[in-house]
Design a protein around this nucleic acid. Structure first.
Lengths: 139, 139
DNA sequence: GACAAGATGTTAATATGTTATTAATTTAAA
DNA sequence: TTTAAATTAATAACATATTAACATCTTGTC
């Protein structure tokens, strides 16, 4: 076993890519990718949010969200409208089609998330989740 | 807390990006990125390997490794030479400069890997690593 | 030996993510 | 009030990752 293969960063990256690939496969028939779905899910609870707010919650930089919103809007799932209270800003709104799709994708994502949890000992799940929280907080 | 933010996929992705960013910052002065460093580290133990072998070990597709090797070779850190035993294939060799740099980066990476482990309770480390192994095996 | 099937690496097209820069606007300060 | 500083989103440039298509070469079978 090579040294670098024990780096958490390497292992986390490989696992994340594998999971993302599976999500993307499941979402393929809807024409959506995993990253795009997070924006849709976010808008379900924050319809009309600006780019920066979305970026903060999905933990991406603004330019990345700009790109995701571009692709979603090209599919008629979201709309950009000017923010009347701040002309620099933009409000992202779910269209009917987008709202409907987001509602359809959410249970699919939740179901696969359960599958992932099943991959490890059920007794270890709370500890694993606690570790994730600590990584989020302490890095 | 939004639903999607509890998806392991979301959390793992965000953590991985954060760690990668820190590695890339530490490697910046060497003109190297995290992904490129994995290829260098791999060659330390498998000098002369082919693209497909490297891809298998670093868990990427061949085209991704082709790109990484392109950038490394542009910096004179690796060399492509024809495989005399199979004319489809290519051997990737570390140059002196590449070998020297890989040896210099490895301890930096190991040191930051320890930092990351310090982010979680030391008692939880073995369980977290066991969970990673199970995710690798069962997904 | 000839041909079909498989293997190897590259290229192209698309999506993702980061950093730096820019344009437009708002806020704060002098 | 005029100017300086900060904010918002977009763009450009680059690196990364995946899939599909391709060219080249090897191998196995007849």
């Amino acid at each position: 076993m090579e040294k670098y293969q024990q780096f958490w960063c390497f292992r986390l990256g490989a696992i994340t890519r594998k999971i993302s690939r599976e999500y993307n496969t499941r979402f393929l028939e809807f024409g959506i990718t995993l990253g795009q779905s997070f924006v849709l899910f976010d808008l379900l609870e924050h319809d009309g949010a600006g780019i920066k707010d979305i970026a903060g919650r999905v933990q991406l930089d603004s330019p990345a969200v700009t790109g995701l919103v571009d692709r979603l809007s090209r599919q008629g799932l979201v709309e950009r409208i000017d923010d009347p209270s701040d002309r620099r800003s933009v409000k992202i709104l779910l269209t009917e089609k987008g709202k409907e799709l987001a509602g359809r994708l959410l249970p699919i994502a939740q179901e696969y998330n359960s599958c992932i949890k099943d991959a490890i000992d059920s007794l270890d799940v709370p500890i694993f989740e606690r570790s994730l929280t600590q990584l989020e907080q302490n890095l």
